[in-house]
Computed example of a mutant assay.
Amino acid sequence: MIESLLWGVVGAAPLVLGAVLAGLRRWPDRLIGIVLGFGAGALVASIAFELWEEGLQQGGPLPLVLGVVLGAAVYFVADRLVERRAAKAGGAAAAGVPLALGALLDGVPEQLVLGFGLADGQGVSIALVVAIFVSNLPESVGSSADLLDGGVKKPAVLGIWSAVAVVCALSTVLGWALADVATVGVRTGLNGFAAGALLVMLVDSMVPEAQRRAKDVAGVATVFGFALAAGLATVPF
């Protein structure tokens, strides 16, 4: 259990680090956009090579597709609820929340799967750790920057991302504890759930925000992020 908790903390730490970095100073819009674009590319690679490909090999298309649909639906509904509350509060309080919501809905099933693997005796590769860092950090930096721009105080931003990180880290321990009862279908469905939530978040929030901030270089940054994360996913360590 201690090992699963340690790896859970390692996987969730970039979320808090991103909030800290965003709060240190006001970063240029163009730089934040590049970071978001890079993170979006990394997440696309994560969906393709880690969540979808591994899920397909593990449990086949049916539980994977069902998970994708459920993850997309849950994110869509939760994001609409956030938007309604934001409209009542004037909008500022919800700046950056879609990225945090996406990180939560992605991080929980992803780290549950990590816990399953640890319980089964599978090692954690350096490539996986770096890939988690590359994808999680830009989400947190971008969301935190938006929250701060929307008038949310630094302690509150740090609190939001600390809460997300704690839930994600504990999910690894939960996955370790439930490994014996989690069927292949459930594990595959969790991969799909994370992929579905991420895809909607990318199209609705992360990519448009990267384009708004970085403009003409957002696409190039996305390609670089994809190339790095895809390379890490396919090179054994």
Score class of each variant (00 low, 15 high):
E3N: 12
S4R: 04
L5M: 10
W7P: 05
G8L: 01
G8E: 09
G8R: 00
V9R: 00
G11A: 14
G11V: 08
A13M: 10
P14G: 09
L17S: 04
G18D: 06
A19H: 08
A19G: 11
V20E: 11
V20H: 08
L21C: 01
A22P: 00
P28K: 00
I32A: 03
I32E: 08
L36M: 13
G37V: 07
F38D: 08
G39V: 03
G41P: 10
A42W: 11
L43C: 03
V44K: 00
I47E: 02
F49H: 15
E50R: 04
E50L: 07
L51R: 05
W52E: 11
W52K: 02
L56Y: 15
Q57K: 13
G60Q: 05
G60W: 14
P61I: 14
L62M: 12
V65E: 12
A73K: 00
Y75I: 09
F76R: 05
V77M: 02
V77P: 07
V77G: 00
R80V: 12
R80H: 14
L81T: 04
L81I: 12
E83S: 10
E83K: 06
R85P: 03
A86E: 15
A86I: 05
A86T: 09
K88T: 13
A89K: 09
A92N: 10
A93P: 08
A94V: 15
A94C: 06
G96W: 10
V97K: 00
V97I: 15
V97G: 02
P98C: 06
P98L: 09
A100V: 11
L101A: 07
L101V: 04
A103Q: 06
L105G: 03
G107Q: 01
G107F: 00
V108C: 04
E110G: 00
E110L: 07
L112Y: 03
L114D: 03
L114N: 02
G115E: 05
F116C: 01
F116T: 01
G117D: 09
A119P: 15
A119I: 07
D120C: 00
G121H: 12
V124D: 05
I126E: 13
V130P: 10
V130N: 06
N136I: 07
L137P: 10
E139L: 13
S140K: 04
G142H: 10
S143P: 11
S143K: 06
S144W: 08
G151R: 03
K154W: 15
P155H: 03
P155Y: 06
L158Q: 12
G159C: 10
I160N: 06
I160Y: 15
I160W: 15
W161Y: 15
A165Y: 03
C168W: 06
A169C: 01
S171V: 09
T172A: 14
V173L: 13
V173S: 00
L174S: 08
A177N: 11
A177D: 13
A177M: 14
A179W: 13
D180S: 12
V181Y: 12
V181K: 05
V184G: 15
G185Y: 14
V186C: 05
V186D: 11
T188S: 08
T188Y: 11
G189W: 06
N191H: 14
N191W: 12
G196T: 08
L198W: 09
V200C: 03
S205Q: 07
M206C: 02
P208C: 04
P208D: 10
K215F: 02
D216L: 13
V217K: 02
V217M: 07
G219Y: 11
F224L: 15
G225V: 05
F226C: 00
A227F: 13
L228C: 03
V235Y: 15
